[in-house]
Design a protein around this nucleic acid. Sequence first.
DNA 1: ATAAGCAATGCAAACGTTTGCATTGCTAAA
DNA 2: TTTAGCAATGCAAACGTTTGCATTGCTTAT
Lengths: 335, 335
Amino acid sequence: MSATIKDIAKAVGVNPSTVSRVINGTASISEETREKINQAMKELDYHPNSLARSLVNGSTFTIGLVIDAGNKDAFSNAFFIQSVIAIETAAQTKGYSVLITNHSLSDSNNIKTLVQERKVDGIILPVQCMTDELICLMTANKFPFVVMGEPQLKKEEIFWVDVDNEQGSRQAVDCLIRSAYRRPMLLVEDKKTIFESKRIKGFERECEAKGIQSPSVHAFSEERIDEFLNEILEGKRDTDSFICSNNIIAYKVLKALKAKKLDVPRQIGVITFDNYPLAEYMEPALSVVDVDTYKMGETAAELLLKAISGKEKKAKSQLIEAKIIERDSTRLKQK
Amino acid sequence: MSATIKDIAKAVGVNPSTVSRVINGTASISEETREKINQAMKELDYHPNSLARSLVNGSTFTIGLVIDAGNKDAFSNAFFIQSVIAIETAAQTKGYSVLITNHSLSDSNNIKTLVQERKVDGIILPVQCMTDELICLMTANKFPFVVMGEPQLKKEEIFWVDVDNEQGSRQAVDCLIRSAYRRPMLLVEDKKTIFESKRIKGFERECEAKGIQSPSVHAFSEERIDEFLNEILEGKRDTDSFICSNNIIAYKVLKALKAKKLDVPRQIGVITFDNYPLAEYMEPALSVVDVDTYKMGETAAELLLKAISGKEKKAKSQLIEAKIIERDSTRLKQK
DNA sequence: ATAAGCAATGCAAACGTTTGCATTGCTAAA
DNA sequence: TTTAGCAATGCAAACGTTTGCATTGCTTAT
């Protein structure tokens, strides 16, 4: 059994409340007793019981982090862990702990329980775990939460953090143009998701800014890419570079290019979203639009903590800047 | 403010203790009052306050999970997240929550705090986060913990879970031999780490079992691999397949093989540890020794929960079987 | 008919804190 | 010299549970 505040009080000969006040610095205490109490705490190896503390002051000093267990995509998970670390670090510096909980679409009870049993003071959850029911529950209870990823609905009313996909996309175009490519094509997975639509928007805007007419955006498919490459080889299409919306696409594009014996970067440039670890080991080393997932987690945590403390009343969103990491796959022009 | 046990008691007209007993099923209660209480709990949307509960019965129903924040290796992190999900799932089914905490070698205070403030009933930690000081602290406090990865020291006295590296290595050899390769070479990163030594052991044993004389194990380096390939081409060395101890090695080997125009799998077979997501998109698709990281997490959690409940007194270790996923890079013989 | 036993429930303390409201001296202003 | 004010501390209630020890009434064996 570890020492309690009462043990300290007894040892020093004061009231437990005095000890509490020393610990929390919540009232003026004479230098003398403060000394003695601190001494006693060290000697008895005292550590405050966080449960008791939470019980009385109504907050747990813990935030919940929802993990999308349904997401078997090891790619996004690899990024995610950096966010997790960042969240924990940010939380810790403010004295908060992080409780995790899985979430699968079939069952959002975990999250509900978290909110209802008041085990945490607020939660961070990925956008794909957000349901209307959940939003209602949380807003009704004035329960603070931050969404990772831009929500489709009610985005004005909730806190969220996301990568600046539009800016990232513009950067990618800019990178290609600076390397003397003239006509990039954007390859996406699914035009309807919100992040893809942002990337498309950014792509089109930057193309326009660079004076490229009718920029071409396509949903990726292996047959389609073969077609494109044939057209390029036959001179019917003047695409000279690809921006891939994720690593798998990039990998398949690279494969198709090799099969057609098109040289990267000399004939065709390739840049991709998602700075996946293997990208730099590829042949050629892939240029990427890199997202600082650490910063994303950190920002989410900071936002949540502000919301919890009440410093940030109005819903707020933040975009994390994307950066280009130039590697071999876009080095048309030697510098 | 949410409803408390007292509110329920008042609503039904019984003592709080009766409500508590209904909730916990800890005494015989008349059918009638049980009904009424359950009814009232639903109507008032009652959820027990876990803090108060923990305070009185001395356990938090929470386990701690240590994340190695120092580990920038996105590769291992990608695997790790599966373990995290497994741990949370296993914990949850037993009514436990999971609290995470970062750990960097520079500062093991996080873990110490976790133990000392009794925020959790036990912890799971990666082997690289284990220090002697920590072990002492935890064993002195009879604080249950499970290590992920085989420890070097005191392994008889502590709970741990690891991949069966020896068996995985044997499987890899077996896979190659079954595919009609005759002389595999094992390429490792660092012969001294415990898991590498297990792999070496398994490799040597299985080679012996297959009648392969003086099996060759080497620390990987890019120059070295080039040498080997030259020797193979010149007929001075009869290695016909490689077992790589991780993905990066595999990737570099593949690259070197391509540069020398050696055909995989026809001239040389390649199999690697770590089933990294891109492996199946490689050219050729890489055969791998796959580890069920989900199961590893699950096992760790189950072990910890047993230790916490006192069902498992004596330290115990468990090895998770590795499985071969055969893809193109080892298909010498068509089936 | 009586005692013993048991089912159903109440009472109150306990878990380890925090905190509003005293209380006690003491200092400084009037 | 009185009084207001303040620094330093004590007292006890409160946070929401659980649980050992009553208590009450009823059943059943003697």
